[in-house]
Amino acid sequence: MSFDIALIIDSIPKMLMGIGLTFQLLFLSLALGTALGVMLLILRISGRWYLSWPTMIYIYIFRGTPILVQIFIIYYGLPQLEFVRDGIFWPILREPFGCAIVALTLNTGAYLSEIFRGGVLGVDRGLKEAGSALGLSVTDRFIYITAPIAIRLCLPAYSNDVVSLMKSTALASTITLLDMMGIARTIVAETYAPYEVFISVMVIYLIITWAIQRTFGWIEKRMSRHVRQ
């Protein structure tokens, strides 16, 4: 087997043209997924069964099925339904980019809400009691005591999920999007050189992962610098 270095040098810049789309998919669905995760968490720990049960079912479905299936259902399945085509979300769901964002957001939101719940459960009960004893309202206790401590506790798991989400963005290439993976697949289709191209794209993903890990490592260190010695 020959290994075509020139092809690698030639294709890396082309694939990097898709990095913008990869980052858009990552950051947009991360931001929306984080907001969704917080909302799901609040419903889940509300203590009201009619709020927590549907949330648990939602989380079970989106964590329990492959993200690829979720992307296909949203992209291929939803447009079959007339009320979706007539609905207010049609401008989003008619575009593959919109579908990818929706799928990634719904999926990562389910994971993140469980990560956040782990953080909230990890907060020492005595600290919440101390807040109560000082007369803080439920909301103030959550905002000023539980949340800041829970965020620190769930940061390692959160960064893990960001890496996982970044890799999932490659699945957007299955619904015609030309992110880095989409471009890689196009080049492979033209050159029949899967090793060179896919290994190159792999290296780019590894570099992004490294950057994400470094960033979160720095944030973790900063946030816990005075908490533990």
Partner: peptide
Amino acid sequence: VKDIDAVRSEVGMVFQSFNLFPH
């Protein structure tokens, strides 16, 4: 609940395990 928060703000409590906010 409103009344409870009002009462709690008039009653100070010190715990065995201090319970200072670590952050």
